[in-house]
Amino acid sequence: MTIREILDAGGRVWLILLTLTISSYLLAEDFATRGGLVIMAGLFAFAFIKARLIIRHFMEVKHAPLALRIAFDVWAVVGFCSLVGVAWYGHEGLLN
């Protein structure tokens, strides 16, 4: 297998996923102190972008019928918004 073939078969997506993973890790560094809501939202955004890359390219949902593509995108948007929403709610001390 040539490098070219590996890259075309999903290697590029894999490299992007690795880069995003290491970036999230560095973004979250200094685990002992409490970060801001922005950092948390950023981490979740990275996670859902990665999830969508896996869905579109590895599961090949990009070739799927429209209904399935929409279903996964709805999951990603609703999922991201709920996690950030709940985190925001707690962060603002609204629960106490």
Partner: peptide, 19 residues
């Protein structure tokens, strides 16, 4: 198998990294 992978990606953000 890809789903197992993507669940872990979100789990890592929520359980290990979010602070």
């Amino acid at each position: 198998w890809h789903m197992v992978d993507l669940l872990w990606v979100i789990l890592m953000a929520v359980v290990y990294l979010a602070r």
